[in-house]
């Protein structure tokens, strides 16, 4: 049994990570999903949150933690692919912007009716801002 699985983290503007991973945990719509090597073929949508992965770089294990926006995760026999709108490492996060995004989204959401697409959109923005703030703190 393979101990690692090829792992790719792709955003529309770059490949945020490409390498081998022992474990990938992302926040799915149904809660956290962890993928180990040899996982059955699997596809899920991701909510904004913190993606964690144990990756192997140059033979040594490393913990990868990124705040990710909405996206998808697919596990196939040939690897795990995560597609997200944006993925930020701890050092890339602009805390003041995240705070501002959080306040703005909360304000916009307060005037919307729950269960509407607009409401959900703002909720995603709130979740993403929270994920960034959590990771940065």
């Amino acid at each position: 049994m393979a101990k690692t699985v090829p792992f790719k983290l792709i955003t529309p503007t770059a490949i945020a990570f490409e390498g081998e991973a022992e474990l990938v945990i992302a926040v799915g719509t149904e809660g956290e999903e962890g993928i180990l090597p040899s996982h059955a073929p699997f596809l899920t949508a991701l909510r904004p949150g913190i993606l964690r992965a144990n990756v192997v770089e140059n033979g040594t294990g490393k913990r990868l933690e990124l705040a990710t926006n909405e996206g998808f995760m697919q596990a196939l026999p040939d690897g795990v692919t995560v597609l997200v709108d944006e993925a930020l490492g701890r050092d890339d996060i602009d805390v003041s912007k995240a705070r501002q995004d959080l306040t703005d989204a909360r304000e916009r959401q307060s005037s919307l009716a729950p269960q509407t697409p607009e409401y959900e959109r703002e909720q995603a923005a709130i979740d993403y801002a929270n994920a960034r703030l959590t990771l940065a703190s």
Partner: peptide
Amino acid sequence: PRALVEFAPSPEAVLTRLLPKYLEFTIFY
């Protein structure tokens, strides 16, 4: 051969999210 895939929670639910994202990305591209 890749058709045998498990979906969480359901293919329909994932599709509901994937299609708008696909539209968004097509416009971006």
